[in-house]
Amino acid sequence: MGAMPTYLRVVVTTRCNHRCDFCHREGDPHARGTPAELSLPALEARVLAAVRAGVRKVKLLGGEPFLRRDLPSLIAAVRAACPAVDLSVITAGAVPVEALLRAYDAGLTRVNVSIHGFTAAAHARTTRAPGAFALRQEFLAAALAEATRRGVPLKLNYVFGEDGDRGDLAALLTWSTDKPVVVGLLDDLGADLSWRPLAALVEALRGPHATQVVLVDPASLPTLLRRWPDGLRVEFKHLRLGEVAPYVACPTCPARARCKEGITALRLTHRGLFQPCMDRPDAAFDLGPFLGGAAGGDIGAAFALRAWARSL
């Protein structure tokens, strides 16, 4: 890439109240018997070093990030270090609404809700967490209200794998139609799908789209946003990291042929390692030795991270 990436995805914990098959934890699987997360000071130091190095878009994810009770502290620290940062959370939403409100109070910019099954039956089947559905519905209503109040669309991510439930997807699309919602339709990275079959599926369910635009994201790969005549909006990751090869090392990367990611971002895994992409845990970078002194990171650590990231 030759430049400092501006997008960081942070696995704040691998703990989760769901057990979905497709959870990838940004390419650093949790090993049984090891800690699920960094301490708050260790996590803050790494994230703040990244912000000091030039990161301007931070996504907190998991596991279920809202299971960390100290998440608002992390959000507040990042917001204080850089008021302009785009700070969001990806959640499955089966948590008390208060967790969302506390995060917004601390300085969260927006939230993406992963819809692991829209209907009660599909939710139970995907998450293998019976009883979580009612909590998710309550959270979804609150997230929608908050997004409406803030004037930004609520992003709902939906993973449709090889054994995807068309009826469940259809229900989500129908529900989303008259709301300020964008559905991000993703394929299961483990399956050999791409955005085209997914787009065809939506057309089969909802008819032909009316307009489409490519939304350029300065921090990541562009996305394709399609709008249907009834107002439904669906976003597709129509480019793959392996095709675009944004990093200097991509052309000779051994994982390039199977690289299906639709996102360019640095990852900070639950063990505190920085990774350039999900497929290359062997290329991870440990910032730990460069972090000294108070929580919040220091300039030396930021320089080290910047030098590593720019060499990618």
Partner: peptide, 20 residues
């Protein structure tokens, strides 16, 4: 109407500090 909507959607991806 669609142009306004799409432009605001595009803005969602932009952190104010990132140059474009």
């Amino acid at each position: 109407d669609e142009v306004f909507r799409a432009e605001l959607d595009r803005d969602v991806n932009w952190a104010p500090g990132v140059v474009r």
